[in-house]
Design a protein around this nucleic acid. Structure first.
Lengths: 145, 145
DNA sequence: CAAAATTCATTAGTATACAAATAGATTTTG
DNA sequence: CAAAATCTATTTGTATACTAATGAATTTTG
């Protein structure tokens, strides 16, 4: 009876043990590491720039899809990168709907200068794990995408 | 020489393999699952309510600390929960700086009604993993908080 | 005890994130 | 080919998240 009552109020639901909560905390820690190592770009800005350097160029929405950002989000990210002269946009002549985006020389240079820190961000994020654990973790996390 | 040039431009940095990017994608997937199962609360609102039901009551900042939200964030979350009558706030008589927060009867009832779905959210998030993998994953993820 | 340091809550500003609606351009289809 | 469907980018609105600054209250310290 008292067990039933306790469950009605508390239900044995421990927030700190839920995967969503721990996922959020791990993300926060990672974002903190990122901000301390690459203060001039946010993780999403860096992702857009990195993917752009990887692809060469892409339409705005296509870039959003490749970096897991919806149309509204990628628009803001590209606007801010363009304002800083790190990317340039042109209307696609073949398809008037598309906005063609590419990294500028300054954007490519900034990306190149950040890559080393980006690798350290990955290392530092995974630092609490052994080499074996890192591989296992990345393998399991990848399944949850 | 061509190898050096390629590295200068591309640097072998594959965004999709970085832990931060995969972490963000896994979070996005989890948030989608959450929204589909508990549309009446955001994950942070649910976290605040759950922690409040777990603790009984707390000051606003204390609740923020317990749910990994900074002062500015928890303020917004509590404001929105209060507007909907799910929590109530009172000035702490013993410490005039503190704002005492507790769940209302409606808040406790909503939490109780959501707990079952919350468990399913955890299950669905981890569904791509076997039982063994889930334990391993949670153990490793917890180290990265 | 008084000054200094800390804590608490609030505010303003910036940056994701996503839903929903819109308008124009392109593709698909009947 | 014309209508329907889809795609692209934009806009609006809401909700985290964090930084930095502020003022009021409390605690610590010399």
């Amino acid at each position: 009876m008292s067990d039933t009552q306790q469950n009605t109020l508390q239900q044995d639901y421990i927030l700190d043990e839920q995967v969503g909560f721990i996922l959020r905390r791990a993300s926060q820690r990672h974002l903190g590491i990122f901000a301390s190592r690459i203060p001039e770009l946010t993780p999403t800005q860096f992702a857009a720039l990195a993917k752009l350097c990887e692809l060469g160029a892409a339409s705005q929405n296509e870039l959003g899809r490749r970096t897991a950002m919806d149309a509204a989000t990628i628009k803001g990210v590209i606007d801010r990168l363009r304002r800083r002269g790190l990317v340039a946009t042109v209307k696609d002549a073949n398809d008037q709907r598309r906005l063609f985006v590419k990294a500028t020389a300054a954007g490519e240079e900034l990306f190149a200068n950040c890559v080393e820190q980006a690798r350290k961000i990955t290392d530092e994020t995974l630092a609490p794990l052994s080499e074996k654990e890192r591989l296992m973790f990345l393998q399991l996390l990848s399944k949850l995408q």
